[in-house]
């Protein structure tokens, strides 16, 4: 599958994030971020912050309510707690993405899968590490309900919720445009206990540029 060519004035970064690794960086207003699911079925847990005011951070529930729909895809505007647009999804070859499933954690793994999974690597450990490494006062308190790109968590009208097989495939991508200066924090999900990574976490590619 060939993704559309990127016409960049300036390439800001082009990073491959390994399975279970993290990435944090800034994206100036107007810049684009493309996330490529290199091998398919890989959940990319992502947080967004207003780069000038970290407390004005991505809000999954405000985003869901204001767009009147549960899933994210092209046209979805990712809103902050202050209802400010942080980023817009401008291209999406996957089709839809989750923002209700949250990030996996050692503690939630123990609840969901049993105590024997408590010491497995998990997204929220990556997020805590990324927050500490980025510094500037960021910590666990700033970790909120995230976006799960390439993940499929269907909700049903009778109130059901499941983790389903991914709808993604090798080479699929999602592309965002920053609507203000933002900080992006990624955890490439290491979850082994459900189908969100096809039981085999794989690398993803992050490309940032200014058009």
């Amino acid at each position: 599958m060939t993704a559309p060519a990127i016409t960049a004035t300036t390439t800001l970064f082009d990073a491959t994030v390994g399975a279970g690794a993290g990435w944090t960086g800034e994206l100036p207003a107007g810049a684009h971020l493309r996330i490529v699911d290199l091998c398919g079925n890989q959940a990319v847990d992502t947080l967004f912050f207003d780069a000038r005011d970290y407390a004005n951070r991505y809000s999954a529930v405000d985003t869901i309510r204001e767009q009147g729909a549960v899933y994210l895809t092209t046209g979805s505007v990712l809103l902050s707690t202050g209802l400010d647009p942080l980023a817009t999804i401008v291209d999406d070859t996957c089709g839809r993405h989750d923002t209700l499933g949250g990030a996996c954690a050692q503690e939630s793994n123990a609840v969901r899968y049993g105590e024997h999974t408590r010491h497995q690597h998990a997204c929220r450990t990556t997020f805590v590490r990324e927050a500490m490494a980025w510094g500037r006062g960021l910590g666990k308190r700033d970790l909120t309900h995230n976006v799960n790109f390439f993940m499929n968590v269907p909700l049903t009208p009778d109130g059901g919720l499941t983790f389903a097989d991914g709808v993604s495939a090798p080479g699929k991508h999602v592309e965002l445009r920053a609507e203000r200066d933002i900080l992006v924090m990624v955890s490439n999900c290491p979850q082994l206990n459900n189908p969100c990574n096809g039981y085999d976490p794989t690398p993803v590619r992050l490309i940032g540029w200014t058009p």
Partner: peptide, 22 residues
């Protein structure tokens, strides 16, 4: 809320769900 809902396979809160912390 995400941890609460995904652990109990529910899209809403209803008895006898447990409200879970992070």
């Amino acid at each position: 809320v995400p941890d609460t809902l995904k652990a109990q396979m529910s899209a809403c809160l209803r008895p006898p769900l447990v409200l879970m912390s992070d």
